[in-house]
Simulated assay, not measured.
Amino acid sequence: MAPEESTEAVRLLPSFERRFLAARALRSFPWQSLEEKLRDSSGPELLLNILQKPSGDSVTLSESTAIISHGTTGLVTWDAALYLAEWAMQNPAAFAHRTVLELGSGAGLTGLAICKTCRPSAYIFSDCHSCVLEQLRGNILLNGLSLEADVTDDSESPRVTVAQLDWDVVTAPQLAAFQPDVVIAADVLYCPETVLSLVRVLQRLSACLKNQQAPDAYIAFTVRNPETCQLFTNELGIAGIPWEAVPHHDQKLFPYEEHSEMAILKLTL
């Protein structure tokens, strides 16, 4: 293989691995270019480099094929969930040996990645939609994790629970019972109504946990509408919840839209 061909192959491989191994849509992948490199290669090195890469643990998901199904968008994985999962795997100390509460877990990708790679002591998946909760429980079992009642004392897996949690009606005592050390959410800032509901539930969490060390909260989102993002930070200020932007990470493990602008805010409740 000529030097320039080798350089092109190195450039293509990471993109191919992320997309192929994640079994995501490959419409934008330059198949013709890869086919030419494979055809012109004098040996099997390029193909071996693709197939013999060491792989870590995997996350398997059952998802809807429709963006909106059963009146909810929670049956598919959105880009910010992938982005937050990547950040978590690069920063496992933020979750290790801690109780994590996820608000709006959806299909469960972020939580499953954290449970498998960050060693939390307990993880609470939550959502409000019955179909989402049913799919979520199935995905947890699909990935070899047990729900709390099935976990033995000597298990190395985190204690995993699934909670039905409606942000608009959940009470302070119900939130206090979770006793989280870390709170996370991904791609839940899609309209002003959900922004206001999220800030209210964060306020309740902050109030009911005031007698313990303040938990950190990490909210990841795709910047689709700057006004919605601005509303979120404004409402956090009104609620007296400090926040700071988490630096962008460079660990690209999952395929999502290259042009998407993602952000994570770290809040102190």
Rank of each mutant, 00 (worst) to 15 (best):
1 M>I: 12
1 M>A: 15
2 A>K: 15
3 P>F: 02
4 E>M: 10
5 E>W: 05
8 E>P: 07
10 V>C: 12
11 R>D: 14
12 L>R: 03
12 L>F: 06
19 R>N: 11
21 L>K: 13
23 A>H: 15
23 A>M: 12
24 R>F: 10
24 R>D: 09
25 A>D: 14
26 L>W: 10
27 R>E: 10
30 P>H: 03
32 Q>M: 13
33 S>F: 05
34 L>A: 07
41 S>C: 15
41 S>N: 15
45 E>H: 13
47 L>I: 11
47 L>S: 13
47 L>T: 11
50 I>G: 08
51 L>I: 14
52 Q>D: 14
52 Q>C: 14
53 K>M: 12
53 K>C: 13
56 G>E: 06
59 V>G: 06
59 V>C: 03
69 S>E: 15
70 H>R: 12
71 G>Y: 11
73 T>V: 05
74 G>S: 07
75 L>R: 00
78 W>A: 05
79 D>P: 11
80 A>Y: 00
82 L>R: 08
87 W>I: 04
89 M>Y: 05
90 Q>I: 00
90 Q>P: 05
92 P>D: 07
93 A>P: 02
96 A>E: 13
98 R>E: 08
100 V>D: 00
101 L>G: 05
101 L>W: 08
102 E>D: 02
106 G>I: 00
109 L>M: 05
110 T>G: 04
115 C>S: 01
115 C>D: 01
120 P>T: 08
122 A>P: 00
123 Y>V: 07
124 I>V: 15
125 F>R: 01
126 S>M: 06
127 D>C: 12
130 S>V: 06
130 S>T: 14
140 I>C: 02
141 L>N: 12
141 L>G: 09
142 L>K: 04
142 L>R: 06
144 G>D: 07
150 D>N: 11
158 P>L: 13
160 V>Q: 04
162 V>T: 04
164 Q>F: 06
165 L>M: 13
166 D>L: 08
166 D>S: 13
168 D>G: 07
173 P>T: 13
174 Q>P: 09
175 L>T: 10
176 A>Q: 15
181 D>G: 05
181 D>I: 09
181 D>H: 13
182 V>R: 08
183 V>C: 07
186 A>K: 03
187 D>T: 02
188 V>H: 01
189 L>I: 12
189 L>E: 04
190 Y>E: 05
190 Y>Q: 05
191 C>R: 11
192 P>D: 10
194 T>Q: 07
198 L>N: 04
200 R>G: 01
202 L>N: 08
203 Q>P: 00
211 N>M: 13
212 Q>A: 12
213 Q>E: 14
216 D>M: 03
216 D>I: 01
219 I>R: 03
221 F>L: 01
227 E>P: 00
232 F>H: 01
233 T>E: 10
233 T>L: 09
234 N>H: 14
234 N>M: 07
235 E>V: 00
241 I>N: 06
241 I>G: 07
241 I>Q: 02
242 P>N: 03
246 V>Y: 11
247 P>G: 02
247 P>W: 02
247 P>Q: 02
249 H>S: 12
250 D>G: 14
251 Q>E: 12
253 L>T: 07
255 P>W: 02
256 Y>C: 03
259 H>G: 08
259 H>V: 10
259 H>E: 07
262 M>I: 01
265 L>D: 01
265 L>M: 05
267 L>E: 02
